[in-house]
Computed example of a mutant assay.
Amino acid sequence: MAGKDRKKQLARQRYERQEQRRQAQAARARRMKVIGSAVGVAVIAAAGVGIAVFAGKDDKSKADGPDAAATPSAKPGSAPTPRRRARPGRRRTSGPRR
């Protein structure tokens, strides 16, 4: 009878190990599902913001069409401020200085 009891004990231990492994796999699957859902929501939200930003830029460019050029935006008689130009032969590089 001792051999039969030992077999039952080993079978019970094996079942408990398998059950722990199944629970760990189920927990990992739930965690991955939550992470995947959060990433999906973030991607959709970013796409919505991007579309809103680009759609807003299109509206502004249409408003600055030929009709907008006919209306002066600066005060009459005021000269535009001159812009500073870069010196020729000097280019900025992102590499190290020599």
Score class of each variant (00 low, 15 high):
F54D: 06
A63D: 08
V49R: 07
G50K: 07
S37W: 15
A38E: 15
A47G: 11
V49N: 08
I44T: 14
A38G: 00
A68Q: 06
V43K: 10
V49P: 13
G40V: 05
A63P: 06
A52N: 08
K62V: 15
D67Q: 11
G40R: 01
G65H: 06
A69P: 12
A45V: 13
V53Q: 08
K57A: 10
V49S: 03
A42Y: 09
S61Q: 15
A45C: 00
A46Q: 00
I44Y: 12
V41M: 08
A45H: 01
S61L: 15
S37L: 14
D67A: 07
K60T: 13
K60S: 10
D58Q: 13
I51V: 13
D59P: 04
A47D: 10
P66V: 04
P66M: 03
S61M: 15
I44L: 14
V53F: 01
G48E: 00
V41R: 15
A45R: 01
K57H: 12
A68F: 02
A52R: 05
K57F: 08
I51H: 09
A70H: 11
G40L: 02
I44Q: 01
V49D: 06
I44R: 11
K62Q: 08
F54Q: 07
G48I: 10
G65F: 03
P66D: 03
S61C: 11
V43I: 15
A63C: 02
P66G: 02
V43M: 05
K57V: 14
D58Y: 07
A38R: 10
G56N: 06
A70E: 08
G56Q: 08
K60A: 11
A63Y: 00
A45L: 10
G40C: 05
F54E: 04
I51C: 02
I44V: 15
A45N: 07
G48K: 04
A46H: 06
K62N: 11
A42K: 13
G50H: 03
K57E: 14
A69L: 12
V43F: 03
K60M: 14
V49G: 06
A46E: 09
D58E: 14
A69C: 04
G56F: 04
A45W: 05
V43E: 05
A47H: 02
I51D: 00
A68M: 03
V39L: 10
K62H: 09
G40N: 00
A70D: 09
A55W: 05
T71L: 11
A52P: 05
A63L: 12
S61P: 09
V53P: 05
A52E: 09
A68I: 09
G48H: 02
I44D: 04
A46K: 06
A52T: 13
A46C: 09
G50A: 01
A55C: 04
D67K: 15
V53L: 09
D67E: 07
D64W: 13
K62I: 14
I51A: 02
V49F: 02
G65R: 07
V41Y: 03
F54T: 13
A63T: 10
A47M: 09
S37K: 15
V43S: 00
A45G: 06
D67W: 11
V43T: 12
D58K: 14
G56I: 00
G65P: 09
V49W: 06
A68P: 04
